Simulated assay, not measured.
Amino acid sequence: MLTTAPSTDLRVTLVQTELHWHQPDANQRMLADKLTPLVNQTDLIILPEMFTTGFSMEPELLAEPEQGNTLQWMLQQAQQTGAAITGSVIVRDATGFRNRLYWVTPEGQTHHYDKRHLFRMAQEQEHYQAGSERLVVEYRGWRILPQVCYDLRFPVFSRNTGDYDLAIYIANWPESRRHAWRTLLQARAIENLSYVAGVNRVGTDGKGLAYSGDSLLVDAAGQLLLDHPVGGRFVETRTLSAEKLNNFRASFPAWQDADHFDLKL
């Protein structure tokens, strides 16, 4: 049940960009330049999946320790901008390699979510360990569900049981499947009566795959609040209205008729 709701608005920034293939330092420098104008201008900054390397199946060459350089960089950027930052990076833990989404706040708090659904068409499951826990973060009065790329195709895992107001999907989603990406982002917003942000990369990666971006911000009715032409780089901020979300949920309470079930991972 949607028994609680946000009481204040939330400024969300989507960063759609090219990525330097297998060059963490270059990507950090590039992204730091993009984030500099955001100081005190937003509440949340969303980066793409594997934003330091591109979507690589060579974790043995690229993985960082759990408290590695990229996490420290994110903490520094969060403190400087005054905003939470989220994105995923290749990490090695005690059990193997993870496609790990980090969530960091200006106050130095950190959370992480390990990608649950590994993209078998790229043999991701042969190189990485799947996550086992779903994460919902409470931040500035909002409950936020962060997920990664292929997770978008699995609506049960994204099901809103009254526990979130904004779902985030970060991705390296190829241009050849852009219709599915756009359609599913809107579907997740509509069926879950929630805002949805999808942040994808652009450009061509080291394997020759092209990415069209199509980063979107969608309201609970499925209307596009942010949409850009194919392939463009941008850093843009939109304000999510708590009042509009609460009013829509009250006027169209489909959640009251939802089926009840237990999600077993």
Rank of each mutant, 00 (worst) to 15 (best):
M1V: 09
V12Q: 10
L14H: 04
E18L: 02
H20E: 11
W21K: 01
W21Y: 10
W21R: 02
P24D: 01
N27S: 07
R29C: 00
M30G: 05
A32W: 11
T36K: 15
N40D: 02
Q41I: 11
P48L: 15
M50N: 06
T52D: 14
S56F: 07
M57L: 10
M57R: 09
P65R: 01
Q67N: 12
N69V: 10
Q72K: 14
Q76M: 09
Q77T: 01
I85R: 12
T86I: 11
T86P: 02
S88A: 13
V91N: 02
V91T: 11
V91I: 14
T95C: 00
T95Q: 12
R98M: 01
L101D: 06
V104E: 00
D114K: 04
D114R: 01
R116Q: 13
F119T: 03
M121D: 14
M121G: 02
Q125P: 02
Y128S: 06
S132M: 10
S132W: 13
L135Y: 04
L135E: 12
E138M: 08
E138Q: 15
E138H: 14
R140S: 04
L145M: 13
L145G: 03
P146K: 11
Q147K: 13
V148A: 03
V148D: 09
Y150P: 00
Y150W: 11
D151R: 01
P155Q: 09
V156G: 04
R159I: 00
Y169R: 04
P174V: 15
R178V: 13
H179Y: 07
T183I: 08
L185A: 15
L185E: 09
R188A: 15
R188H: 13
E191S: 04
A197Q: 12
A197H: 08
N200E: 09
G203I: 07
K207M: 06
A210G: 00
Y211E: 10
D214H: 10
V218M: 12
D219M: 04
A220N: 07
G222I: 14
G222V: 12
L226N: 04
L226V: 11
H228Y: 06
F234K: 08
T239C: 04
E243W: 10
K244M: 14
N246W: 01
N246H: 03
A250R: 11
A254H: 10
A254W: 13
W255R: 01
Q256Y: 01
D262E: 12
